[in-house]
Each structure stands twice: as C-alpha cells, then as structure tokens.
Design a protein around this nucleic acid. Sequence first.
DNA 1: CTAACATTTTTCCAACTGGTCAAATTTCTG
DNA 2: CAGAAATTTGACCAGTTGGAAAAATGTTAG
Lengths: 224, 224
Amino acid sequence: MLESDRPKGRGTEARQRKARPITRIQREKQDLILEAALDVFSLHGFRGATIDQIAEAAGMSKPNLLYYFPRKEDIHKRLMAGMLDIWLAPLRHMDSDGDPIPEIRSYIRRKLKMSRDFPRQSRLFANEMLQGAPRIIDMLEGELKTLVDEKAKVIGGWMDEGKLNRADPYHLIFAIWATTQHYADFDVQVRAVLGNDRSGEGRFEDAACFLEQLFMHGLKPQRG
Amino acid sequence: MLESDRPKGRGTEARQRKARPITRIQREKQDLILEAALDVFSLHGFRGATIDQIAEAAGMSKPNLLYYFPRKEDIHKRLMAGMLDIWLAPLRHMDSDGDPIPEIRSYIRRKLKMSRDFPRQSRLFANEMLQGAPRIIDMLEGELKTLVDEKAKVIGGWMDEGKLNRADPYHLIFAIWATTQHYADFDVQVRAVLGNDRSGEGRFEDAACFLEQLFMHGLKPQRG
DNA sequence: CTAACATTTTTCCAACTGGTCAAATTTCTG
DNA sequence: CAGAAATTTGACCAGTTGGAAAAATGTTAG
C-alpha cells in the first residue's frame, strides 16, 4: 500500500506531551526546516520530496529533523497552513466599500506581487492542486469557497450598479488567479520564451501593465 | 544520489537492437502502458510516480512493463513528446492571414477545448513546469520559443494595423495559456468553489463565454 | 509441427524510503 | 559547577523502489 493512502493515527505534536515552553533552538531549527522543506516540496510535491533531501537542505541529519517534526506529513501540513494565509490574503483585502475599478486593479497587483515575492508558496499550492488537493480539499470547500462566494457577491453587486461590465464573477476571480499565478508556477516557461533580456526584473512590471490593460479594456479597439 | 539527478547513459530503445518490425502486441501494450502512465505521472509528477503504480494501472507486472520501456524515463519521454504536440497545436493553428479578433477568439476556444479534452496532458505539462522543466527545457527554449516569437510578431502586426488594442503580445499569449490551463490544472479548486451545481458540463461553456468577454472587452464599461 | 522469436513470470538485488531507538553530547537552570 | 532537560548522532529496521537475469510460456512463419 502506498504511504500517501495510509491513514495516520496520531496528531502532529507527538513530542511535546507536556506543553513545555518552546525553546530558542526549537524555533530556530523549525524555521530552518520549514524553509528547506518549502524548497523541496514546492519543487517535487509531497510524494516526490524526501526527508533526506529536506534534512540535507536544512543542514542537519534526518533523525535530528524528525526530532522536530516526527512525520513528513507534519512539515507539509505546517507549510500548507502558512501558505494558505499568504495565498488568501490578497482576496481578503478586497474592499466592498471601495471603488470597483481601483479595487480590482489593486487586487490584481497584490496577487501578482504575491507570485513575485512568494513563488515557492505559489508552487506548493499548485502542486497540491495538481494532485487533487488531497490534503486541503476541506479547506477549499470550506474557507476558500466561503471567501470566494462573499467576494463574488460583492463583484456581482458592482456589476448590478453598472460600475463594471457584466460577467461571471467566479470566472473573473479564476482568471485573476490564473494569470497572476502563471508568473510563479510557469516561471521556467516565461523565462524560456522571453529570453534572458526581458526575463529579469522588468518582467513583473510588464505583466502588471499588461494585466491591467487586459482586465480593464480587453483587446478590441473602441472605434468600430 | 537521487535518481532524478543521476545522468543516464543509454538511449531509449535498448530492447530493439536490430530494428525489428513492431508487432501488434507491442503496439497494444505500449499504448496501454502510456495510457496508464499518463494517469500516474500527471497526478504525481515524475519523481512521485512509481513503475509499480503504472504497471498496476496498466494491468501487468512490473518486469513485463519494463520489457516494453526499459526505463521509467523512457515512458515519461514518450508522453512528453505526445503531450507537447497536443499542447502546441492550438497556437500553431492561429492564422496570420485571418481576421485578428476571430483568430484570437478561436485560439482561446481551441486552447480551452484542449484543457477539457486532454486535462491529463495539461497537468503533465504543468507538473514538468513546476519542477523547472528539467526534461524539456531545450524544447522550451527552442521549438516553443520559436513558435511564440513568430506568433507574437503576427499579433504585434495586427496591433500596428490598429486591429487590436496595443498590448504586449507575449504577455497576451501567457494570459491565454494561464486562463485556459487553469480549468484543467486547478480543476479541483474550480469544482470546490463552484460547488456541485455549476461544476459539471456547463462549466467550460461558461468559461468560454467569460474569457471571450474578458479578452474582447475587459471590465470597464464604455460609457465613461 | 517445430524452431525461432516474442512475451510473461518468478526470483532477486542494491539503493532508497520513512521512521525508531538508545546512547552521546550540548545547553540551560539553579 | 552539577544535574536535568534538550538536542544530536549513529546504528538500525522493514517496506518500497527501479531495475536485472533467467527461466517459462506463447506465438508464428516456414
């Protein structure tokens, strides 16, 4: 039987039975491990990543790593939680009392900034999605859906007021997610296509301009 | 040392040393294997997938599978080639002599159809991208870049003629890729958010309508 | 039918996997 | 500094992994 299908019995904090205060070393080493694990998991996915890889990247032995996170799953779970906060923040921030056009414009910018500043988190998320989101499906159907439903209603309201062209708010959100994530998740492809010249820093500025234009005006010229 | 980093010496067709004609059984079994492997690789990525899984999905023993594809890599390589054909076809099909607006509109439709009809290929591609495209980086910088450069020039020409709003053609292509792939790669998320009601057949029709509207008109109403 | 070839199965292996355990070492607290 | 607690290490384990070898079984052209 494969390890990813096997049900796990115990909870996360197997080692801290008596809720001792967390030491300095504990915090430092845990951060070190999570940092290394983010590299590895975001590159190979849960199944493709190994504890040895993570331990080596964190500069410690495997048993030592397992002292802090008794199971591979535990590390992944922690990363997942942190990542989801980052991932959801830009949408959470969209203000129903603001002006529709600037609100959406700045939502796009925030989401794109997230792709630039936290590409590994984005890829971690993408990896989980590709695998059918086995470890966060509940969160998708709960927290995420709730948030999206709420924001879709807001956007729909703006459209009712004639402040935005009528369109499906859900698919609009999908489109923003997709276009912004692309620059983190498909980074290699973007670099390969743009070549070395335009794949550096200016890349994200170009993307921001383009996306703003796309979402605001579309492609069809307004003279015919 | 990890298997993904280890250099491989021999070529693909280790077993067919004297170029014998391919038998009926060979073709059938190879197809069966590739079909099964597409399931597994697209779900777990190269490192996460195991030969055992593929063999079981194909209904044969592991050594039997290895008789047809001596190395795990060989299967993946074959899938990659087939996938790239499918992946590139919609863009190849865009006609520089056609009308810009309808051409782009139908390109979007073709690409979205690809996501609907070949989601596993799309996810296989996405998996490879997330991992930094180690096995197809040459193809990206060669074949793909060439094609995109060519089509970007075409689109740029259309813009020069005033038939399209001015925008960066490369980022336009990225946006079309991103938005259409999303429905294959992030299928779970889309389903989770839309719920059971609207996540069925109509989903892709809704998406097509939305994307058409987005790329043609954008969000800003044209009365101010 | 039968020899030559193609296919399949059985057995096996060394490396890697996630994880355990007890002993050794380091760090903190009084 | 001493003792207790926290941390690190090395040895180990059972299951999995990609793959090899050879024997056993099918298939087919002459």
